[in-house]
């Protein structure tokens, strides 16, 4: 007797689903805090339905069969949503692999008397499920990477504030390493803010930049030149002794850029340019 594996599994759908859910519920990696049991059941049912519907001999032989497309889609969706919800890789992996256990259990029971068929079937199921497992991981990592990328964008956005310290003077404290992408954001923000506020002086404070190499220096020089083209003066402040050392050792020429040791002295210089004077108020001494 040559029983049809796909037909057999399709007939046993309900049993497979129950067994799979049971597996998941007793597993210690179940995360009730992240996903309710109803949701889990719904998700699992959708996947089992799609998988069993697409099963055929062709699918077992060829992992790229077009019939499997909907299954892959559902699985990718589940995997990405899990990555975003904060499931660990192990939990996500076990979710898919526990389906394999469920399938095998059903087969065990059905094909007890036919070891040859059982062996073949298990082999084929293993192959199929391994494929699904690999796919799960790929999409899971993709999902995670998306999260990381989004966070990077947010950090860049947050980390480049342009502060108006005086009428006509802008300050931009840079914290963290400068790379080309970030310099671009910094430059755009600064220039836009110069236009918006009509400021004539911009102070670039780099006391929060851990190290300056030739590339970072290049970016700084670019920012300063762009500010100049706009018709504003740019001062770099917060150059620490180590940075001064590396800059000179690297042979970077910063001589045509105004540099100051601290934000305070840069501000003082800016006041000088704007012909402003800061004075201590003299108390009136009554005669």
């Amino acid at each position: 007797m040559k029983a049809d594996l796909s037909k057999l599994l399709q007939r046993k759908k309900k049993q497979i689903l129950e067994s799979w859910i049971q597996h998941q519920l007793v597993d210690e990696t179940l995360r009730e805090d992240l996903m309710s049991n109803e949701e889990l059941r719904e998700q699992s049912e959708e996947l089992v339905n799609a998988l069993l519907k697409s099963l055929s001999d062709k699918v077992f032989a060829d992992a790229d069969a077009p019939e499997l497309e909907p299954v892959y889609e559902i699985l990718a969706g589940i995997s990405i949503s899990r990555a975003r919800q904060g499931f660990s890789p192990k939990e996500t992996g076990l979710y898919v692999f526990s389906l394999k256990n469920a399938l095998q259990e059903v087969l065990d029971e059905e094909a007890k008397d036919d070891p040859q068929f059982l062996y073949d079937s298990i082999k084929r199921i293993n192959k199929l499920m391994d494929n699904l497992g690999v796919l799960t991981f790929e999409t899971y990592i993709k999902g995670r990477e998306e999260v990381i990328l989004r966070q990077t964008d947010e950090i860049t956005e947050i980390s480049t504030p342009v502060i108006r310290v005086w009428d006509g003077i802008l300050a931009l404290p840079i914290i963290g390493t400068l790379d080309s992408a970030r310099t671009q954001v910094v430059m755009e923000n600064l220039l836009q803010e110069i236009v918006n506020t009509g400021s004539t002086i911009a102070i670039l404070d780099i006391s929060g930049v851990p190290a300056v190499d030739s590339l970072v220096a290049q970016h700084l020089i670019k920012t300063v030149s762009a500010t100049r083209l706009m018709g504003a003066e740019c001062i770099i402040s917060g150059i620490r002794p180590e940075i001064a050392q590396t800059v000179v050792h690297l042979g970077i020429d910063l001589s045509n850029i105004v540099t100051k040791a601290s934000l305070a002295s840069a501000l003082k210089y800016a006041f000088g340019l704007m012909k402003l004077d800061v004075k201590r108020i003299q108390k009136d001494i009554k005669s």
Binding site: Q184, M187, E188, L191, Q192, I194, V195, K222, S225, A226, T227, L229, M230, G231
Partner: peptide
Amino acid sequence: MQPAVAITLI
């Protein structure tokens, strides 16, 4: 000069 123009020139 517009910011975009300045960046382009640099």
